[in-house]
Design a binder for these strands. Structure first.
Lengths: 162, 162
DNA sequence: GGGTTTGCTTAAGTAACTTAACTAAGTAGG
DNA sequence: CCTACTTAGTTAAGTTACTTAAGCAAACCC
């Protein structure tokens, strides 16, 4: 397939995905409610990213900002929201009391995972129609794309003529 | 690779891409300005999608909404913005005067393409590090994902218990 | 030729970011 | 140590890209 046409199609599809990820997914709230957990939370892509990142252990605000790809004030707001809904906790790093360590609230790791299940289910359907090889290529493409955007960010930071 | 971990990684990466697509790309405005075209426009992913869609000929607002994946009021606003900057034109379909046909403003097709060149360049770099086979698998994955989100949308529209 | 439907726009509201300005904690030199 | 600088996080204010609801005008339908 012609590369230029492929690029056009990717440019058409990527924003659709970006928006789609933002939608709640109809069932997720109801399901959690059935388990007796008071979640009227609206979970955005950013929230999902934070919850997944915490799966690899506690993170500082700054670390989360890097991983999620947004500014620290944005992470502060994401964490505020998750904290209000008792999904995560803040505590101070004892070795450096400036840094705020964010972690799952006690016992919330599994529940957080279930909260994301609606989104994960749809993703799983899509990924499962791919062969192992295709899945690997797909992920490779995504990573390359992310890299290229990171590059663009730095380019912008150093000024257009550098 | 474990599918579940792959899904987590995709959930981490997709929002990053969604946001990245939104950034202007530092050079693009300057470059256009050099060509003497007065573009102080801020071009969002939605605008890019509209401009690409028009490459396949004029579209009604409703058609654009479908292709771009947003509501018609949103398209109205996108087109307003593009029209203010003389990128596109509105005209009435003579056979049905309700429908507004959107098309490139005269001579703007090439220029529109150049305006998107910054974004396309970064995308091209990424895509060009893929083999033909990988590129095909990547596109296939993207399409599947988009489908799965479209499905979710209808599911939501018909109510959660249907 | 009234009544419904369809296509688009206008209006109003919201979510998720951004940058700039501030506070508090750690670090280093004299 | 205390003053000056740096780093981590939050608060504040503003922007953008959407959403739904309501309105208007053209087309369709017996």
């Amino acid at each position: 397939m012609d590369r230029e046409r492929l690029i056009d199609e990717v440019l058409m599809l990527l924003p659709v995905l970006g928006r789609g990820l933002g939608r709640p997914g109809p069932r997720e709230l109801g399901e959690i409610a059935e388990r007796g957990i008071p979640v009227d939370a609206h979970i955005s892509p950013g929230h999902v990213q934070v919850l997944i990142a915490l799966g690899r252990g506690p993170h500082s605000i700054r670390q989360l900002a890097g991983v999620v790809g947004v500014s620290s004030p944005a992470v502060t707001q994401l964490v505020n929201h998750l904290e209000e809904h008792k999904m995560v906790e803040r505590r101070h790093d004892p070795s450096d009391r400036r840094v705020v360590l964010v972690d799952y609230a006690p016992g919330m790791q599994d529940i957080a995972r279930r909260m994301m299940e609606g989104r994960r289910r749809r993703l799983r359907e899509a990924v499962n129609s791919l062969t192992d090889e295709e899945a690997r290529a797909f992920l490779k493409g995504l990573r390359l794309l992310v890299e290229s955007f990171d590059g663009a960010k730095e380019e912008a930071a150093h000024g257009p003529h550098r």
